[in-house]
Every structure is written in C-alpha cells, then in structure tokens.
Design a binder for these strands. Structure first.
Lengths: 232, 232
DNA sequence: CAGTGGTCTAGACCACTGG
DNA sequence: CAGTGGTCTAGACCACTGG
C-alpha cells in the first residue's frame, strides 16, 4: 500500500502528463487537496512539497501552487557513451581493460551498492583512449545479482554502460561532479602529472530492481569537459 | 527569526563541521532532538529530513540517522540560486560585490554574448560566501540591451541570476563544466592556493530575445560539487 | 522486546498576496 | 478582506532493526 501523499502525487502527475493541467496552471490548494482526498492538510502539503522539490511545481506564499514548465533536464549527463563521443569527433577509440574481477566489497563500496559489507561484487577498471591518449578511467562496481554475466562480456567490442543498459534498463541515476587531485597511480594511468586537476564523475545507476552499478569516472581536466544544453 | 527546524539543522551542521560528529556517527534520534530542542517530533524530523535530502545524513528505519561523509551537492538539474542553497544548509549567506560596471567587450567577450567587438556590456564580479568562506566567484557579462537596469540593482538583497530571470524569463541555457587550475588573482579571491583544483561552470543563458548573459562561476574543488538526479 | 524512523491527524497561528 | 502557503504541536499507529 503506497502512502497517501504518493497517491496524491501520482494523481497530480497524471493530470500534468495528460494535459489536463498545463504549465502555469494553478494546482489545487493544500486545503482543496486535503478535502478532495480526505486527508489532513499536512499530508496534502507533503504531496505538493515533493512535487515542488522535483521541479514539477512552483509555490508562492499567498498565491498558490502552479505547474512549472521546467522540464526535468536530461542533457547534463545524458548517459552518453564515451566511445560514441570519441568516434563522433572522428577520432580513434580504444579501450584498455585493466581489471575485470570479483572483489569483496569494503564498507564504502558496499554502501554505494546498497549491499552488506564483504559482499562479493564485480569490478572493472577500463581506460578509454582517444587516439591513444587516455581520456577516461572508468572504475566500476556492479551488483552481481542483477547482472550475473557482467564479467563475461568483451569490453573491447562494447562499453560497460551499453551492456548494462541492455540487460537492465535504467530507471534512475544519481551523479556527482567534482574537481579533484588524484593519486599517483591514477595519474600514471591517465598519463598526466598528479598536480593536474581532474574532473571526476561518480554515478550510481538504478533499474527497476535496484542499484545496478556505481561508476567513478576520472578525466584529465585539460582534455575533458562536460557540456550541456537546457531548454525550459 | 529563522524557523526552528533551520536552527536545529545549523546546530547539527556545526557539530559535523567542528568534528564533534564524524562520518558514520549516529545522530540524535528524532525523539531525542525533539526533547533537546523542546519542539515536536515533526519539527525535529523535518530538520533531519532536510539534512538527509541535502546529503549530510543517511537514515535507516529501525536503526537511526547517521552522518554521511558527503560534501554538500548542488544540483545541476536546475539553475538554482547559490544563496538559497547556502541558506537551505542553515548557513549564513553573504555577497561581496567586487565589480559592477560597464566594460568594452574584447573579442572573446563579444563572441560569448553574440555582439560586435568593442560593444559596451555590463560586467559584475561577485563573491558568494558561506559563513564568511568564499564558495563561488561569479564573473558575469550581461547584454545591456535586454537588461538596461542590471547595474542598478542591490545584489546584496538578491542575486544576479534571480534578477535576470525576473526581467527576462529564461528559455535556454548552455553550460560547460571543467576542472581547472586558476590564476593567482582568483585564488586570492577564493582564499585557496593556486595549486588547488577548481570547478568552473560557464553558462550562457537565453531568453526569447537572445543571449542575456554569460557567467563564469569558479568554485574551490574542496568546497563544492555538483550533484544531480535523473529519472528516465 | 525497546527504540528507531515512516506516516498521518486535526487542529493552531503566522506571513503573505490579491482585490 | 478571504485565501494561500509556512510553521508547529501533541498526539497516534505502523514497519522495521537489533538484541
């Protein structure tokens, strides 16, 4: 049984998707929702609050709650494949597989995947090269439960993320972007000096079943940037 | 007068920052907080919920709430205001206006705004501080044609991006994210050493009329990161 | 089992917006 | 002014975790 506020959210989202409520339209007030769904105002309010947090609505005190026209933006890290990106630039793409093995997750790693400590997980470390120059070190952990054949693929032929999304369609992703200094071992792999800033992207991907994978992507700051375009 | 839940958040964040509570430590339970701060459990709960949403804590039903080792993340999914982000953490927001003037655009600057070289444009340089610590240097160029009153606003009261979107609703934005080393002058402003990596976001915003503004945002890599969530 | 977080109620007072 | 969202209370019952 889903919580009441989730049911109310679904109801409102359906109205947005079906076009019954359009961008700029006024949503029912907290009191109206409370009466309509026979819940307390606090519960109705929670439904609206979450929709606001998720970018579907906007609120102004004294005025009301309105459907926002802000489409959830996908471009920032539209999980695009590094190989395509390189090939699209007309360059040569190569992958160097440094590791493809079963490891025992330490505390942090198990947290990332939502597993118990000491669980066995799959780990791959792959360098992606553009014209023989390292562009990305991909260090990835995968939950074996959902992707048992993960280690038996040829990652010179396809990428890990392409394989993963073929066996377990993505439903969600979290990501984080930071500028960091890296340890010497990683600097060696990327063929840069440890003083050079790196762009690190950490990404956790979910399918309907749960957390599929946690990837840490390291890029030399002078060779890689993230670009994006937003429409409102 | 700040809301009680914000006060409780600040209190807890202070304990994290001062090292009294470290990553992995158990935070007071909702009931303990309620008693300690003499508020209802719902109010104490809200403080914890927001800290969880902002990535400072993690909760497990039946177990408790624990300090996470994450730095604050700001979302790339929305052009969010830096001041709101800071205030939402229960911290003090201050802006230091370094420059607000008319400048003659050089070749690069005129390109960014889609103007002719030597055109007069508005430029502001503003440091955004969290609890007196610099979090972002905002270096912004604005097309005077669309925002003639840009320089006559009080940017201690509102932010440039909030003012801009109030006078010219955004329709599009381009952005780029990079990890870079910065020049000494900027390092001084951000109060870091020039060897520290920085996260730079460059963003061009469009309204229906055309390019409104080009902003370069510099952040100390160790104080700032971008987070986001995608649904597919 | 006692303790935790998750949901929910039926009220209350307040700050703000528009007319 | 009536209506809106923003905060807050003092309860309640539930689902879950560990011992």
């Amino acid at each position: 049984m889903l919580p009441r506020y989730t049911q109310i959210k679904s109801e409102l989202l359906e109205q947005i998707e079906s076009g019954q409520m359009k961008a700029g339209d006024k949503a029912p007030s907290e009191n109206q929702l409370a009466e309509q769904f026979d819940v307390s105002r606090m519960t109705a309010r929670r439904a609206l609050t979450e929709l606001v947090d998720e970018g579907f609505m906007m609120r102004t005190q004294g005025l009301g709650t309105f459907v926002s026209d802000h489409r959830p933006m996908s471009s920032m890290l539209s999980i695009n494949s590094i190989d395509e990106e390189i090939i699209n630039r007309g360059h040569q793409y190569t992958a160097k597989i440094l590791m493809a093995d079963v490891v025992v997750a330490d505390e942090q790693q198990s947290n990332w995947l939502g597993l118990n400590e000491n669980a066995e997980v799959f780990r791959t470390r792959i360098v992606h090269l553009e014209n023989i120059v390292p562009l990305q070190l991909e260090d990835r952990l995968v939950n074996p439960k959902w992707v048992p054949e993960y280690l038996h693929q040829n990652y010179n032929e396809t990428t890990t993320s392409r394989y993963l999304s073929s066996v377990a369609p993505l439903t969600e992703a979290d990501h984080m972007v930071e500028a960091i200094l890296i340890e010497n071992a990683i600097a060696d792999i990327l063929d840069i000096s440890p003083e050079q800033p790196c762009l690190k992207i950490s990404r956790r991907t979910f399918s309907a079943k749960g957390i599929i994978s946690y990837a840490q992507l390291y890029h030399p700051g002078n060779r890689y940037r993230i670009g994006g375009h937003l429409d409102f």
